[in-house]
Design a protein around this nucleic acid. Structure first.
Length: 431
RNA sequence: UCCCCAGUAGCUCAGCGGUAGAGUAGGUGGCUGUUAACCACUUGGUCGUUGGUUCGAAUCCAACCUGGGGAGCCA
């Protein structure tokens, strides 16, 4: 079916157009109806005058329920009184389907109700704007890596064992009494891909069975994980920094309207430029203590610690060289301090927390075998991984970026659940 | 798993020991420029569940259920 998209109305002033859409709202005033139409590209106002359209049609438009699907034919004109600046003078309309009483009103709703009605809530302004920004973010990430010679190499969703431990894995029945687990990270597979393609990345859903109930957690979330051969920690940090700058710039360029709907102050986003502050773990601990926060060297940062550190700058804060003891088994040790690892976290500004975690990987076979034993991981499952250190091992590294946390930060959204179309959370898996 | 908060009309909430309320949505009527339109009338209830205290419980107490916020862990 052919129609004009509401977003393109500006190119059709004076023309007769057909809008294929839904009734977002109606304001009736005696002998005229203001129909607010929605078509997925935007909102526009159409006006139907009694006498100018068929009497039966005029009457049925006055009764039309919210979210009824409707095809409207009319003439486009500029009108400052109309939201969006354009208005359609209705010539004719066809009601495709008369909607039942729509549960989502124009007024306030509670979180539980909105999440239970997520399939309908998607039509509302905020979710619409947020998911359009998400689309831009994903597109920007794909372009960023594709333009730099990375190959997209998909990692499996079913995995035979834990990448970094087993307590937070979703277990599923595989064949013949075997167990499989939903992936927590595609990283180990990306290390294999990096040795094959030089630069590789995966982009997909990952799963964490953590019983976390906070604004930063989902049980299913999307992650992009680049991995590069012949790379050290500095290369990884530079890559993450450049990527974040490009993502933010792209959203500012493409989604001004969406950010406006979200009432997002764009000034903090415009400040996102390289270089980001780089803070050594030792210095971060010192900064926390100087700031009056009790924190012992060797621990991992909690939410208040991250919050404090990230608020020292208006740009993302890069914390590097965490103690090896609190990081995954595959992290390379810091040659300058054996207690530390060549790891890095990027903390988003404005208190949005960790959005990137990564580092340089250990390339020595003996060291990794030792670590597997120390971490109590099943050696058998890592046989293929060890092969990567048997056949042409090189320095390499990469990171994982959480898409929803990044979108939440850019949109200024309170909770990550709004930054994925159908959030999966602790105790919520509907719709 | 732990700590805090909340469950009353389709939805958002008020009521906090003495007859179950408002706004909004829905319905009916009115209105030629509305911007969450407005005005009048109107339908709508097992006050989360179970037990207890009381002459009397939506209201006080306990347990449970559901949801929200946070901690830990993480992206």
């Amino acid at each position: 079916m052919n129609g004009t998209r509401i977003a393109d109305l500006g190119d059709h002033v004076g023309d007769e157009v057909t809008i294929l859409g839904w009734l977002y709202n109606r304001r009736s005033k005696g002998k005229l109806h203001f129909l607010i139409l929605r078509d997925g590209s935007g909102l526009c106002q159409a006006v139907a005058f009694k006498g100018k359209v068929d009497d039966d049609l005029f009457e049925s438009l006055g009764r039309l329920s919210q979210e009824s699907s409707v095809i409207v034919r009319g003439t486009v004109k500029r009108d400052d009184r109309a939201p969006g600046g354009f208005e359609i003078g209705v010539i004719d309309a066809t009601v495709v389907h008369e909607a039942e009483e729509y549960p989502i009103a124009k007024q306030a709703h509670g979180t539980d109700f909105l999440l239970t009605n997520r399939h309908l809530w998607l039509r509302s302004r905020r979710p619409y704007a947020t998911l359009r920004v998400r689309h831009t973010v994903i597109r920007a990430i794909r372009d960023f890596f594709d333009d730099r010679g990375f190959t997209l190499v998909d990692a499996p969703v079913f995995t035979p064992s834990a990448c970094e431990g087993t307590t937070t894995l979703f277990e599923v029945d595989y064949f013949d009494d075997e167990k499989a687990y939903l992936t927590q990270s595609g990283q180990l597979y990306m290390e294999a891909a990096a040795m094959a393609f030089g630069k590789a990345y995966c982009f997909g859903p990952t799963f964490r069975a953590e019983k976390s109930k906070t604004r930063r957690h989902l049980t299913e979330f999307w992650m992009v994980e680049p991995e590069i051969a012949y790379a050290d920690l500095d290369d990884v940090i530079a890559l993450g920094e450049e990527m974040l700058c490009e993502i933010v710039a792209r959203v500012l360029d493409k989604n001004a309207e969406e950010l406006e709907i979200l009432e997002r102050d764009t000034a903090p986003l415009e400040a996102i430029r390289a270089p980001f502050p780089r803070v050594h773990y030792d210095d971060a601990v010192r900064a926390l203590n100087d700031g009056g926060i009790e924190f012992e060297w060797g621990g991992d940062f909690g939410a208040p610690d991250e919050d404090f550190l990230s608020r020292q700058s208006d740009r993302p804060t890069i914390v590097h060289r965490f103690p090896a003891a609190i990081k995954a088994f595959y992290m390379k040790r810091d040659p300058e301090d054996e207690r530390l690892s060549m790891s890095v976290d990027f903390l988003a500004p404005e208190g949005y927390g960790e959005i990137i975690g990564g580092g340089q990987r250990a390339e020595d076979l003996g060291y990794l075998q030792e670590q597997i034993v120390k971490h109590g991981l099943p050696e058998e499952a890592f046989k293929w991984y060890f092969d990567l250190r048997r056949y042409g091992s090189v320095p390499h590294g990469g990171f994982g970026l959480g898409v929803e946390r990044t979108v939440a930060w850019i949109c200024g959204t309170e909770h990550v659940r709004e930054c994925i179309p159908f959030p999966r959370m602790l105790y919520r898996i509907y719709p």
